[in-house]
Simulated assay, not measured.
Amino acid sequence: MTSAVDSLLEVARSPLGLLGITLGGYQAGRWLQRRTGEHALAQPVLVAIAIAGVAIELLDVDYLDYRSATEMIAFWLGPATVALAIPLHKQYDRLKGFVVPLVVAVLLGAVASITSAVFLARWLGADRALQETLSAKAATTPVAIGLTQSLGGIPPLAAVFAITIGIFGAIAGPTTLHLLRIRDRRARGLALGAVSHGVGASRMLREHETEGAFAGLSMGLSALAISLLLPLLALWLW
């Protein structure tokens, strides 16, 4: 009996086992989402993180080993992000007369995101490294990691902040927009994509195709805007 248990644990600790746990966690999140009628709190990414976190803790797996085992998932995030351009192409006509407001909103949103994070962290007593780490929170995770590293912040923590913001935005964003009486589907998608990147875009795609399309566009433009503006604002902020 002990031998069988040891064998199962060894399989679970293997790269294939860890990959299966991660994918199984996400599918469990999808199942929970369907069973709860698409409840905002039933985010598949959040469920997958919880299940994977508990699993690697119980299995005593080092995070670097887990990260290496699930590299395939990280690789496919790139093509999945690019695929968000497909619904945008179908909404091309909705861009007419909206390009200038869109660009202005993205630029102002990027500046507001960077400066508000830095000043709030500074007001709460955070050191410079944590301020630099928080400054790129609204960018996609790979961009946030790269920018934080170039500034001298803490890249792993930047990834945590970016993912946390994405999940929180996907949970609370649509309700917040509704309470603010923002009805334009382009504006709704633009707002959530700017702060919640991939997770938010995925949520908005389930809300409406137009919202998902503009969330995907906003995600890419916001990452670009933050990449360009953060090095310039850093000269003033620090």
Rank of each mutant, 00 (worst) to 15 (best):
A52D: 09
A55N: 08
L59K: 04
V61A: 12
D62V: 01
Y63G: 09
Y63S: 07
L64D: 15
S68I: 03
A69M: 06
T70A: 12
E71D: 10
I73W: 06
I73R: 09
A74N: 13
F75A: 15
F75G: 11
L77W: 01
L77D: 10
P79E: 10
P79N: 11
P79F: 07
A80L: 05
A80W: 01
A80T: 07
L84E: 13
P87K: 02
P87C: 09
L88H: 10
Q91S: 09
R94I: 04
L95Y: 03
K96S: 14
V99D: 06
V99T: 13
V100F: 03
P101S: 06
V103I: 14
V104M: 12
A105F: 06
A105K: 02
V106A: 09
L107I: 13
A110Q: 03
A110D: 08
V111R: 01
T115W: 03
T115G: 08
A117Y: 00
L120N: 09
A121T: 13
W123K: 10
W123H: 13
L124N: 05
A126E: 09
R128H: 01
L130I: 12
L130Y: 00
L130Q: 05
Q131L: 01
E132S: 05
E132T: 00
A136D: 06
A136C: 05
